[in-house]
């Protein structure tokens, strides 16, 4: 462990040093430079999620600070059951969705219905991932801005963070079938908005 701290101090730490090793060492030494390494790795990703969900750069910067403060103060409770990045993204998404609800008093319609989806309910994911991934970045922003915070969060988790369905279930605290159903509906909404706004015809 001391070697890791020396590596940080001497600047020898590299991109391959696992997050979990940095956290263990940070909890032992409380050396702020170890947390700085985590911050450097993830501040951009956290900020990008905040901007996409909150749709305001100043709000996003404030949210990012609050999120990292929350992580800094509760990092001792990180058990290592999941990857640190998954835990951090979970804090980020839940913070931003709560913030959206608080500001707009958004009532998430259909949440209860989703929670009641039967484990055996059948659905067919008929939208190819390429259809979403191929959208131009300038169109992507406009389409996502028109979506609800919880729907776009699911799309970000899947296509930006590459989280597994199981990890997404852990983040949103819903069953696998509920997550798959909500994800499918989010994809449908994305495609519908994209087609309406940009007259996409698949060519």
């Amino acid at each position: 462990m001391i070697n890791l701290l020396n590596a940080v101090i001497s600047g020898a730490i590299n991109a391959n040093t696992p997050d979990e090793d940095l956290i263990s060492e940070y909890l032992l030494t409380q050396n702020a430079r170890l947390f700085d390494v985590l911050y450097e790795r993830y501040s951009g990703k956290v900020y990008a999620k905040c901007v996409t969900i909150l749709k305001d750069q100043d709000d996003a910067m404030d949210a990012m600070q609050d999120i990292f403060m929350k992580v800094l103060l509760s990092i001792a409770s990180f058990k290592g059951n999941a990857k640190f990045s998954t835990w951090l993204y979970s804090v980020t998404y839940n913070f931003c969705i709560d913030e959206t609800r608080r500001k707009k008093k958004l009532i998430i319609e259909g949440d209860e219905k989703l929670a009641q989806i039967s484990e055996t309910e059948q659905y067919e994911d008929h939208i190819d991932d390429e259809r979403l991934l191929s959208v131009k970045v300038e169109h992507m922003k406009i389409v996502l801005d028109d979506m609800r915070a919880d729907d776009k969060s699911l799309l970000l988790m899947k296509y930006q963070d590459d989280l597994s369905i199981k990890d997404i279930c852990d983040v949103v605290k819903k069953s696998e079938s509920a997550v798959k159903m909500q994800l499918l509906r989010a994809k449908e909404k994305f495609v519908k908005i994209h087609e309406e706004k940009f007259h996409y015809d698949g060519q």
Binding site: G44, K45, Y47, A48, K49, V51, T52, L132, L133, S134, V135, K136, V137, H139, M140, K141, L144, L155, L156, Y159, Q160
Partner: peptide, 12 residues
């Protein structure tokens, strides 16, 4: 190409 990752990069 992944428009989601490209969006993230452009924001950062």
């Amino acid at each position: 190409y992944n428009g989601f990752k490209e969006l993230e990069r452009s924001i950062i």
